[in-house]
């Protein structure tokens, strides 16, 4: 049975007075990979960031409507945003490991959650690195600076860092856009594995990527959700002409 993990209802988002998202209503199922596609500036990243309230960091953002995760509207007044972000983790477009060792990068999340026991931390770090499919590459140099890793490794480390706090939802904002094809393949493989335990929402510019890894695909254009359906349907037989044009490369 498919459970809806995230459910937005009539959601609008404004940057100052400019409307960036126009009436988005979408149901994102649990433990599936949902991909957002669309041309640059169409609002898909903005929408992704509003799912764990990262947009709060930007001045002048105003949101109307509801974003419901597990039956709770996360834009309610007394929501604890810090705890929300533990539940809804995020991986960014540009890999952004901290200027710390590999170990410290992954252990940071558990540590701020109050885990002090060294053996327990070791266990979590190993688990997270294994889940992010990078353990074999870094297990001998956990004490080295994370900034010495390659781009693809850094991105997988960032995924491991997100997994280490054991979220339920992982948001990924073009996680492979800055990587070479080999690293991209590894990340994609990883995403498919991760959906067993996590609900994954991914923004991508690469339509083949969306086709390869996602279960559902949403097409955004100019701040509106044009079409949302099973990935197979979107890529083979879309309902809307705009979607078809975009997928076949006639615009965007």
């Amino acid at each position: 049975m498919i459970v809806d993990k995230i459910n937005t209802e009539d959601m609008f988002l404004y940057y100052s007075s400019k409307m960036a998202l126009n009436n988005i209503s979408i149901k994102i199922p649990e433990k599936k990979v949902t991909a957002f596609i669309g041309p640059s500036g169409c609002g898909k990243s903005t929408f992704l960031r509003s799912l764990n309230r990262m947009n709060d960091l930007i001045d002048g953002v105003k949101i109307e409507g509801k974003v419901i995760i597990d039956n709770i509207n996360i834009y309610d007044k007394n929501i604890d945003v810090v705890t929300l972000r533990k539940k809804v983790g995020m991986v960014f477009q540009k890999s952004n490991p901290f200027a710390k060792s590999i170990y410290e990068n992954v252990a940071y999340g558990p540590k701020i959650n109050g885990i002090k026991d060294k053996s327990q931390l070791d266990e979590i770090v190993e688990m997270a690195l294994k889940n992010a499919a990078i353990w074999d590459e870094v297990k001998d140099r956990l004490g080295d600076s994370a900034l010495g890793l390659s781009g693809g490794q850094q991105q997988r480390l960032c995924i491991a860092r997100t997994l280490a706090v054991n979220p339920e939802i992982v948001l990924m904002d073009e996680p492979a856009s800055a990587l070479d094809p080999l690293s991209t393949a590894k990340i994609e493989e990883l995403i498919v594995q991760l959906k067993e335990n996590y609900t994954i929402v991914i923004v991508t510019h690469n339509m083949q990527q969306a086709a390869r890894i996602s279960d559902n695909t949403a097409f955004f254009y100019l701040g509106e959700l044009i079409e949302y359906d099973r990935t197979k349907k979107i890529f083979t037989n879309p309902d809307k002409k705009q979607t078809e044009d975009y997928i076949t490369g006639r615009f965007g």
């Binding site: 705890t83 983790g89 995020m90 952004n96 901290f98 999340g109 701020i112 960032c158 706090v165």
Partner: peptide
């Protein structure tokens, strides 16, 4: 310090002070 550090930390549920 890159803003991405700040975002990354907040995105895994750290508070501003942390």
């Amino acid at each position: 310090v890159p803003k991405s550090f700040y975002e990354a930390s907040l995105a895994i549920g750290a508070s501003k002070w942390q």
